[in-house]
Amino acid sequence: MKITVITVGKIKEKYLKDAIAEYSKRLSRYCKLEILEVADEKTPDGASEIVEENIREKEGERILKLIKEDAYVITLEISGKMLTSEELADRIETLGIQGKSHLVFVIGGSIGLGREVLRRSDYALSFSKMTFPHQLMRVILLEQIYRSYRIINGEPYHK
């Protein structure tokens, strides 16, 4: 299976880059992983809802250009469905059995995802009702995908 993670913005912190590299290496046993970054827009302090919506739409256009038509798209959203690690593993395994060979996970920027990206989404996934920095969310997502493959393959994982 091919897994693509599309994210808004670059990772600047070395400790996050190291964690992403480690999980990418671990995942290479289980799937073909690619991480694609799109440029983020500067959000002025105190931006109006209209300005924020325009920013989300610009970032969304960049995201949508990277999504292939046959991909199954999972957007990370606070309002999405929360799953246990076992349920996420089951979802990934079921999608593979159903013939979905390319999963795309989308992590928005600091003010979220645009309407068109949300419309393209096949599944809205939430990790928590809390807000996480999108850079850290990349690490959390990769760890959970790795954990999913460990579960799918009946391999031990930390509970």
Results as ranks from 00 to 15, higher is better:
residue 118 L to A: 08
residue 83 L to A: 06
residue 76 L to I: 09
residue 114 G to I: 00
residue 5 V to Q: 06
residue 128 S to Q: 11
residue 127 F to Q: 09
residue 148 S to W: 03
residue 148 S to V: 09
residue 110 S to I: 05
residue 96 G to E: 04
residue 57 E to D: 13
residue 11 I to A: 04
residue 87 E to A: 11
residue 23 Y to Q: 07
residue 128 S to V: 08
residue 65 K to T: 10
residue 153 N to A: 13
residue 90 D to E: 14
residue 124 A to H: 11
residue 41 E to C: 02
residue 81 K to D: 02
residue 99 G to V: 03
residue 89 A to V: 07
residue 10 K to R: 15
residue 46 G to I: 07
residue 157 Y to N: 12
residue 96 G to M: 05
residue 26 R to A: 13
residue 102 H to C: 09
residue 123 Y to D: 05
residue 55 I to G: 02
residue 36 L to K: 15
residue 92 I to D: 06
residue 68 K to G: 04
residue 24 S to H: 09
residue 59 E to I: 00
residue 126 S to K: 09
residue 34 E to F: 04
residue 74 I to N: 02
residue 34 E to G: 09
residue 64 L to A: 05
residue 123 Y to N: 06
residue 87 E to T: 12
residue 73 V to N: 01
residue 154 G to D: 12
residue 134 H to A: 07
residue 28 S to H: 12
residue 128 S to K: 13
residue 95 L to E: 04
residue 27 L to M: 11
residue 125 L to T: 08
residue 63 I to R: 05
residue 96 G to Y: 01
residue 75 T to R: 06
residue 125 L to C: 05
residue 91 R to L: 08
residue 124 A to R: 08
residue 129 K to W: 01
residue 112 G to H: 02
residue 91 R to Q: 08
residue 97 I to N: 11
residue 91 R to S: 10
residue 60 G to L: 01
residue 158 H to Y: 12
residue 26 R to G: 10
residue 76 L to V: 08
residue 45 D to G: 13
residue 89 A to Q: 02
residue 153 N to E: 13
residue 145 I to E: 04
residue 16 L to V: 10
residue 143 E to S: 13
residue 146 Y to W: 14
residue 6 I to Y: 02
residue 104 V to Q: 03
residue 117 V to E: 04
residue 144 Q to E: 13
residue 88 L to E: 06
residue 10 K to H: 14
residue 102 H to Q: 14
residue 139 V to D: 00
residue 21 A to T: 14
residue 145 I to H: 05
residue 41 E to V: 04
residue 117 V to C: 00
residue 21 A to Q: 14
residue 132 F to E: 05
residue 58 K to L: 02
residue 123 Y to K: 02
residue 53 E to S: 14
residue 49 E to K: 15
residue 116 E to R: 12
